[in-house]
Design a protein around this nucleic acid. Structure first.
Lengths: 338, 338
DNA sequence: TTGTATGCGTTATCAC
DNA sequence: GTGATAACGCATACAA
């Protein structure tokens, strides 16, 4: 551990060439088993460690995968990353994680930094207000695998890993309708993001299939920050036709809205039935417990990880370069009880 | 972006030596401003990018900081990491984040992997059941800065960044006593971890100062997993002297306990007053809202980041190599109202 | 099956 | 102020 020992030291010690050492350590087929054994044994004995820096320079690979997510501190994101980490670690890769904190500027900076530090692939979930894909062009030009998950761009040759947000939005809305709701308000984040716009389409679809006329005023687009809950409730109170159903595209924001509604005297689910999205742990802890859409975060992570590894290794399965869509699940709890 | 351009290309183009290019780009004092300007201009024009791999090999530094945390998906941890990231990014470092998922085995693996990939420093918050510090020895022997935060070991020359868990435990307990509690149960995680054992000492201290006799049966050590809430409530119901105060060393577990208590017919805060720990967002959303101890996660992250950078740069401020302790704050909400 | 030699792109130590 | 030149530690094409 004290002094760095190199393949040259091993070579000298064993009276073979550095090349042989290198090949033995990498289990190269042209080396005899006997030599390999000797080398590996000696390497352990002397406490040899490869110098990753040299390997990286020589191979122009870093064995590192860059990740840009909006926020680490969301249950969904971290669950997803746990899945990614498991897969890529098993394949010998490290994860360099950075947060955009929902800012395009930081997303651009992170993309540049990670590019410069030579990541072998980049995994991205977009910031709230990211509109241009300009900052990902260096990756595409350099043919560095680029994978989007959840909040995605559709770029050529860039796999996306998503759930069927349309169907999920449909299912949630349909559930509220089945429970008797006639006038459902949908509370969404930035509609430029695929996740929200598709859920909205699902919402509209469910209304239509149930012969309910869609009304533009039943959409409210917010930052989903806790303090915006007040705006939502104010909006609900201001409406002519009373709202009897609330579809909030995030559990934690739904929890804030419910709290505010309760303090304003609304009874849930009697006056208003509520459904959220994500199956965040919070949804089981609020009262009434929150109905929601479960989102297979961990599985998405595993798939994202596998997709990345395949891309890096050049196993370009054409079916995989397209969009992978995972199953979601409606979870009914107290907040939408009849 | 198409073909990699190197300092040799720039040198040829400008009729100077590669050395001059390198020095110019690094703003070396011995180069004339005029030359520097020419070089920098040309570099931009030709789209030159340093090759980090070469720099790393040459300097034997990676500009990367390894991080091992138990779980990413805890509000406290991710907030903390956000702080770390901000500071180290501004200093030009990347964060390689890995999760131990509360398993010593994975912690050991991660430590090894990060060591091999040549991180310039390592930041650790220990797994639940980590007892030996053997796996950090390579860092110490190689004099790679090693910093612990929150769940820490006390190793020579390894700064620790913590809050005063004793005082926090004292304050929480004292608050419950002030609210009239006479028989307080403390619900803790693994007592091998400094964070929990020190809070327990604070609990005992507060009892003593209020002339309440400490009773061993008033400690319950659990995994803090949601499903253990049942055990806690069963334990409460089984006790001879009724519990009137509950000090749970994690907000999310406190929320689970409260929920279970309520379904078992306990009224909070009337029958039992509850206080948690962390000021997790969840604490404002449960009902009754949860009193807690606020924990300056973001500030801890900033400090941890600064401490790391200082260590790497060799600014070894001796005062800094010791433990840094941050201020916590008691937040009183409904769950401990008189 | 093994050895030799070169290059990966920098930085740093000498010179001049 | 600038130019040679030698590492950094490894992988690999080419020889043997």
């Amino acid at each position: 551990m004290e002094k760095k020992i190199t393949i040259y030291d091993l070579a000298k010690e064993l009276n073979v060439s550095p090349g042989t050492i290198s090949r033995s350590l990498n289990n190269h087929p042209s080396i005899s088993q006997k030599t390999k054994d000797r080398v590996v044994f000696k390497a352990n004995e002397m406490g040899y460690k490869v110098n990753k820096f040299a390997v990286n320079l020589r191979t122009q690979k870093s064995n590192a995968i860059g990740v840009i997510v909006p926020k680490l501190n969301s249950n969904f994101m971290s669950t997803l990353l746990a899945g990614v980490e498991k897969v890529v670690n098993e394949a010998g890769y490290n994860l360099i994680i950075s947060q955009s904190l929902e800012s395009v500027e930081k997303e651009i900076m992170n993309a540049k930094t990670l590019y410069n530090s030579g990541v072998d692939a980049l995994l991205v979930s977009l910031a709230f207000n990211s509109e241009s894909s300009e900052h990902f062009m260096p990756y595409i030009k350099s043919k560095i695998p680029l994978i989007f998950m959840d909040r995605v761009f559709n770029l050529p040759n860039c796999p996306t890993i998503v759930i069927d947000n349309f169907q999920a939005g449909y299912d949630a809305t349909n559930h509220l309708i089945q429970q008797g709701c006639k006038n459902i308000l949908i509370v969404t984040g930035n509609l430029k993001r695929n996740v929200y716009s598709n859920r909205l389409l699902g919402y509209k679809g469910a209304l239509e299939d149930n012969n309910i006329v869609f009304n533009e005023v039943n959409i409210i687009e917010t930052s989903m920050e806790p303090q915006s809950a007040k705006d939502v409730v104010d909006y609900i109170k201001s409406m002519n036709v009373p709202i009897d159903g609330l579809f909030v595209l995030s559990d934690s924001f739904a929890a804030h809205c419910m709290q505010k509604l309760k303090t304003e005297g609304f009874s849930i689910p009697n006056d208003i039935k509520v459904i959220g999205f994500n199956n965040d742990p919070i949804s089981e802890l609020v009262s009434p417990t929150l109905s929601t859409i479960e989102y297979p975060g961990y599985s998405m992570g595993l798939l994202a990880g596998e997709s990345i590894i395949n891309q890096i290794k050049g196993n370009i399965n054409l079916q995989e370069t397209n969009s992978i869509s995972l199953r979601h699940k409606l979870i009914v709890r107290e907040s939408s009880k009849k």
